[in-house]
Computed example of a mutant assay.
Amino acid sequence: MCSNNLKEEKFKMLDNFINTVPNDQSALIEVLHKAQAIFGYLPEDVQSYVAYKLNVPVAKVFGVVSFYSYFTTEPRGKYVINVCMGTACFVKGANLVLEEFERELNIKAGETTKDGKFTIEVLRCVGACGLAPVVTVNDKVYGHFKKEDVKELLESYSEEEV
């Protein structure tokens, strides 16, 4: 497997991006967003690399990554399922939707399936209360979502793999 070559390619992509931004801490969050988009998450070696390239203390980078819930230090699935748990969604049964995803995938919120295909996460509010309850998969929004819709949604993403 060429995982080392792939990782080197990802670091080159990150380097190319870093070369377009200011070489200091003012670009830190922007660079971390790009790094997470490239690598899928922010492992320690990537955080250290960003610190080195931006001439920022590693502790500052770790602090930013751990402070913002958007950033993750664990690999995520190809499909990240977010269940909104804002008040409107919760009142309309989002907790039941979450439980059904957990049951179907045999993982809990915050976890990724063993095959690396799905990650379940919980959001505080998507900002689409009129569509409650809301589920997103990557950047696609599904409104008026019911627990009965879970199996069909998962099957639709599994079919995309074939």
Score class of each variant (00 low, 15 high):
14 L>F: 07
15 D>I: 04
15 D>H: 11
15 D>Y: 06
16 N>E: 15
16 N>W: 02
17 F>T: 10
17 F>D: 09
17 F>L: 08
18 I>S: 07
18 I>G: 04
19 N>F: 07
19 N>Q: 13
20 T>D: 09
20 T>C: 07
21 V>I: 09
21 V>S: 08
24 D>Y: 01
24 D>T: 05
25 Q>E: 15
25 Q>S: 14
27 A>R: 07
27 A>W: 04
28 L>Q: 09
29 I>P: 00
30 E>K: 13
31 V>Q: 05
31 V>D: 02
32 L>M: 10
33 H>I: 05
33 H>Q: 12
34 K>I: 04
34 K>P: 02
34 K>W: 02
35 A>C: 09
36 Q>D: 12
36 Q>Y: 03
37 A>I: 01
37 A>L: 08
37 A>S: 14
37 A>T: 11
39 F>V: 04
40 G>P: 02
40 G>A: 13
41 Y>R: 02
41 Y>H: 15
42 L>R: 07
42 L>Y: 01
43 P>R: 08
44 E>Q: 11
44 E>K: 13
46 V>L: 08
47 Q>C: 12
48 S>L: 10
48 S>M: 13
49 Y>K: 07
50 V>H: 11
50 V>L: 05
51 A>V: 07
53 K>S: 09
55 N>E: 10
56 V>I: 07
56 V>N: 03
56 V>T: 11
56 V>W: 03
57 P>W: 08
57 P>C: 06
57 P>Q: 09
57 P>T: 04
57 P>N: 09
57 P>F: 04
60 K>F: 03
61 V>H: 00
62 F>M: 04
62 F>D: 11
63 G>S: 14
63 G>V: 02
64 V>D: 01
65 V>E: 01
65 V>C: 04
66 S>M: 05
66 S>H: 12
66 S>K: 14
67 F>T: 12
68 Y>F: 14
71 F>S: 12
72 T>A: 13
72 T>V: 07
77 G>F: 00
77 G>L: 02
78 K>S: 14
79 Y>P: 00
80 V>A: 08
81 I>C: 00
82 N>F: 06
82 N>V: 03
82 N>M: 08
82 N>P: 00
84 C>T: 03
85 M>Y: 05
85 M>L: 12
87 T>L: 13
89 C>T: 04
90 F>H: 15
90 F>V: 06
91 V>A: 14
91 V>S: 15
92 K>T: 06
92 K>H: 15
93 G>P: 01
94 A>E: 00
95 N>W: 01
95 N>Q: 14
95 N>L: 06
96 L>T: 07
96 L>N: 14
97 V>N: 00
97 V>L: 00
